[in-house]
Amino acid sequence: MTDLLAGTAASVHPRSAPARIWNVVRLHLIDRRTYIGIPWLIVEMAFVITVFIAQIIGFTTGGLGTPDAIEGQRYSWAVLSPQWYLVIVGVQAISFGFPLALGFGVTRRDFYLGTALLFVLISAVNALAFAVLTQLEQVTEGWFIDTYMFNALWLGLDGFWWTCSRSS
């Protein structure tokens, strides 16, 4: 009897734990808008707004290229804007994604690990993307219009390429 029972369940090709956890990540990412599309749309909108505000400040104070202006723009933190959206989405991943995962026969453990992995990956990819954008911003001297968004206080760095080129 027990053999029979074990035999049937095995016929369903048990998936390995990494495959199951990766499936949870894929389930979250199947709608790309939620974790990738909308956060980057927010970044784009924040950038547009930053450009507008910087230009207004530029007109009124007569120049954005000064060290003071560059330093001042580091306080805008517009670059943090997608984070708050991702916090809310993180809550929704539990309240809406979890019931669906349960229906799909995912264990709570696999769902937790998969969701945690998803956010670690998003954080890593976003960190890398922001680092690259920060460098670009430095190299192009504020996107050629002296507008700095990514080089924010805390998040931003002066950029080692930038530093190297200046100090040499």
Binding site: R20, D31, T34, P99, L100, G103, G105, T107
Partner: peptide, 21 residues
């Protein structure tokens, strides 16, 4: 919490919730 068993089941509740988007 038994992945082997749960893989062989399918249960979509009558009041099943789906992610918002």
């Amino acid at each position: 919490e038994n992945a082997r068993v749960l893989q062989s089941l399918c249960f979509i509740k009558e009041s099943q919730k789906y992610p918002d988007s």
